[in-house]
Design a protein around this nucleic acid. Structure first.
Lengths: 214, 214, 214, 214
DNA sequence: CATGAATGAGAATTCATTCAT
DNA sequence: TATGAATGAATTCTCATTCAT
């Protein structure tokens, strides 16, 4: 079940009461549909089948609730893949070619996105308005994502698998392409009939070879 | 001056009083900085040097003010370049190669973006929350932008300048790349020292040839 | 034309500009439809085809406008019929029987009401809320209507045409009956097909002889 | 105590908090004195000794508060007397003569009016301005009051106790007479020394036999 | 832990009235 | 005399947060 997957994403250490879980569920649904400022705590309480006061037993403020929803997404998105396994596997030549790495990367993030659409929607929508989220985001990117990407790009450049472009430029090419695909897939046209495997492969082809004719 | 450029973007037909212009300026500044829901009409009035009631003489509701700010951006962004000149010039072989078209296109939108950063920030930030804006956006895209891109892509495919990929895929490659560049340039890192000309050319190179090594 | 009749009712001494007449017309229409508090001066101005400021050139305040509309109605309603002709005619035996007087009275007020429905609606609706109107009303009633009725009732009592009831009681019978008929006729069911002459006569019959069987 | 009688009239099903009762009391007092549009929610809150926001926890809008005050009056006024007992008792010959029925009817409504003066004032004053109230009123009259009156009138006509007049005419005679008496008694001159029993009897006499001399 | 009534600061909006032109 | 932009006080309503039970 998607919702309990997401709750897993959010539950790191603590034991949650059933009510707390209901609150999280309700908040995620409502905020992802209507946005943080269009969702009142009383609505959340109602949908969660909980008294309004109960929300504030578990989350100091409404913003705190938002942060508790969004931060784990950032952490997971950046940490899970990179950090531990990613770089090491690259250098252990698990991914012989850059395409292979890219495929594993997209595949992994694709699945994460798939089971966390509402959470990611919330993250993208609210990022612009909450400094707390921006800080967490920047930190995760500069500490985890960027260094990992950097190392990997350097590695494959040396192997001649990547053109001799500034790493920044390569990232600015790869990341929007992948994000663009996923946003189209999950947010803009989620109901279209998608052949995901084919789309992923095509995305990789284009990233590697561009759109230019031979 | 940037601000009066923007006011020009917004002023289509009517005569505005000086106070009305002040209101628009203040609203654009505040909303682009803090978002629509974090900006109160009393703040706007204060910054505009105007009584709060004055806002509502000119804009029926706060939302109406937002729409009046955002809609012209959509219209301008989609209409100005495309529609009239764009397609005709393509077929008159003004742009011999797809790269040339791409260059002209990026250049043009780059300049538009440059003098309308706050307006575009507002558009991007609020798009998710206001159905009125979404409607205008979708319509502009499907009626103006998409058909024009489609025709151009078909044209250059025939000439062998573009790979035989689905048009959708090409668009999903080109658009995010260009947007990604502009967002980095104007929103994420506006203060970095940019060699715009070089960046644009590099973006085109990568779009055409991908990131893969020879 | 009904509306110019009403304007006549309101125009006592002064010369009005065309704009002033338009303002009165618009105010009467709107206030009688929606009530004083639901009608804004801007609406009145708009319907009158006049700038908002113009209203305040002619009427010091919005309330002043209301008073200028309502007071003449009170004056006319009470003064026109009574005072001069009424009592004198009674004693000159113009009306041999009370029924004749009642008929002349109802007929006369009926016609007045007929050509002043909106004004009377306004009077009745706003009477409860504006002390200024109440004062004018009470004064008119106690100075003009009541004394005249009193004299007439005494006169016909002496002639044996009226039962020996307290005058108050007789008034409390006659006035509501007449008002009840007129309100039904003009306000509650104005669209029903009415045989006015027959209704008036029947009203008189019942006032005189009650509803009891023989 | 009059006020708690009225609260009883309004409290049908639900449990009210003490504050809610204070709000109702304050609203009834103020609105009956000054009218709905001249009474602000902040005044009501102040007199009720309650925060303004508290009003809106219990009544969605200011209008909702008005409706919750006025509707039960309509319901009670029309329902209580009629429907159940009224018609049945008529046919069980409880009221041998029409006068007896009239007496019971006036007496009953008199007592209701006596303990609900403010509520009735509000009803009469606001009826003209709120379609919601009009609808409730019309429905109550056409579904409850009118059919009952109709049956009773037919019944007494057959018995020869009422003249052979159209029922409408009889109603248009009886109702305004009774209302006229009550309005004079409770609203226009509540402070006069009244011998209520005598007045009621006299009203009946006049309704039955008219004002005409023998 | 949970409740839900109560709060009160602030938000958007209305509108009669003024005044420079 | 007429205009209409501007005002600002007042109004209704929202909502995150508190707290006694």
């Amino acid at each position: 079940m998607t919702m309990s997957d997401m709750i897993d994403t959010l539950r790191h250490d603590e034991k949650m009461t059933p009510k707390q879980i209901e609150i999280l569920k309700a908040a995620i649904e409502l905020i992802s549909e209507k946005g943080y400022y269009n969702t009142s705590t009383s609505e959340i309480a109602e949908r969660a089948g909980v008294a309004e006061g109960t929300i504030f037993r578990h989350y100091r403020t409404k913003k705190d609730l938002l942060i508790k929803i969004v931060k784990p997404v950032i952490t997971d998105f950046s940490a899970s893949f990179f950090a531990e396994q990613f770089v090491h596997q690259v250098f252990r030549e698990k991914y012989g070619h850059f395409e292979d790495l890219l495929y594993a990367f997209i595949k992994n993030r694709f699945e994460f996105a798939q089971s966390n659409v509402p959470l990611i929607k919330i993250l993208l929508q609210e990022l612009a308005f909450h400094p707390e989220i921006q800080t967490a985001y920047k930190r995760a990117f500069s500490e985890k994502v960027y260094p990992a990407l950097n190392q990997a790009i350097d590695f494959y450049k040396q192997k001649g698998e990547l053109r001799d472009l500034p790493n920044e430029t390569i990232i600015r090419m790869v990341v929007p392409s992948v994000l663009g695909f996923m946003m189209t897939r999950f947010i803009l046209k989620p109901d279209q009939n998608w052949d995901d495997e084919a789309e992923i492969k095509q995305t990789i082809t284009v990233i590697m070879g561009g759109v230019g004719g031979t």
